[in-house]
Amino acid sequence: MSRYLILVILNIPLILAGIINSLVGYKLGRMTRGRFIFGLVFWLILLFGLIFVKPIYTFLFSNNLTKTEPLSLFDVIQITGIIFTLFIANKAFGKADLLERRFNDLHQELSIRLSKEKGDE
């Protein structure tokens, strides 16, 4: 099997999951439109980059724009690892951000209620 095909097969599920997450987040109102568009464009660029990786490499090589070796199996694993890390980082950031917001709201609400109960207010 071609190494380019392996690269696409390994990574497309991650990219599709990224796109679906962005879409679901936006449709459920957990994500702003700007954030959704950014996420979509980000994952689509990766998707097209992967699908057309061979023609891009051939074009660059034939026009003397790169002199790197063709894709090795190690490169495939490395690229997959990078995309997986990006996917996880993106998810982790979204969750940390949501938790931070909830924690702030909770802190403010608790401070107001406790002050009221203590009679500070």
């Binding site: 802190h107 403010q108 608790l110 401070s111 500070d120």
Partner: peptide, 21 residues
């Protein structure tokens, strides 16, 4: 009237609490 924060948050956090009140 005093609203006492449970945790130190900084000027921005305190202002936000006041405006939420």
């Amino acid at each position: 009237k005093v609203i006492r924060h449970i945790l130190n948050t900084g000027s921005g956090g305190s202002t936000a609490t006041g405006l939420i009140y």
